[in-house]
């Protein structure tokens, strides 16, 4: 939703003003705007709404990293509101992570927060998680679901091997996939999984099914 308020937030991000960006979002949350609206209408679009002028091209990655850093802080600060607005507990555990070499973790953090909001017991493990450690985490934590967030399409190479390994070791564990790397159906076809959740709407439907 490209409203004036959103553009105001985007201006603060364009200026790389971390403090004002954070206060802007906290003001929204304190004024009663729900956390999903803040994520869907402000934080997520701002990760894609990126101006990269040709003359600035060489600093665009730097700018992108700065944007990510600000959004990460905002996400952490929003967690009390996630707790406050959490739906009735589902009594199912999900661990969320990015596979080895996947450093884009904002999507995974958002997914983990959403899982918790929707009533799951959710644990975010981290970006760039080695495959053996993922298998160890599953052994110790005994989740009902493992959710993998993948942005870079090249990381489908390691994701395919990882999901195969998870399935071999834990045949009853459900694998959830999400992230831009799966935007093409042919990418999904080549990986072992149980559920593909594209966005919040998909996650709500999934949570409703699990509750049944």
């Amino acid at each position: 939703m490209k409203n004036n308020k959103y553009n105001e937030f985007l201006d603060l991000l364009e200026k790389e003003d971390k403090g004002k960006s954070l206060l802007f979002i906290l003001d929204l949350l304190n004024s009663g705007v729900d956390v999903v609206t803040v994520y869907e209408d402000y934080l997520i679009p701002s990760l894609f709404d990126f101006k990269c002028l040709a003359v600035e091209q060489e600093i665009c990655i730097w700018k992108e990293h700065t944007r990510t850093s600000i959004i990460r802080t905002v996400l952490e600060a929003s967690y009390p509101y996630i707790i406050e607005q959490r739906k009735k507990e589902i009594h199912k555990k999900v661990i969320v992570l990015c596979p080895q070499e996947e450093y884009h973790e904002i999507g995974a953090i958002i997914a983990s927060n959403y899982f918790y909001l929707l009533g799951f017991e959710s644990l975010y493990i981290g970006a760039n998680t080695p495959s053996d450690d993922i298998v160890s985490a599953i052994k110790i934590l005994e989740p009902d679901y493992v959710a993998l967030s993948v942005s870079n399409y090249y990381n489908l190479v390691v994701t395919r091997k990882l999901t195969k390994k998870i399935r071999e070791n834990y045949p009853n564990l459900s694998i959830i996939l999400g992230g831009q790397a799966f935007s093409k159906a042919e990418s999904l076809e080549q990986v072992t999984y149980n559920f593909y959740l594209k966005d919040y709407k998909d996650m709500v439907s999934f949570a409703n099914e699990v509750r049944k």
Partner: peptide
Amino acid sequence: RVIEITDGRISLDIKK
């Protein structure tokens, strides 16, 4: 596009 060969077979074929 990345094509992965494993043991003489195509194990992955993905496009950006």
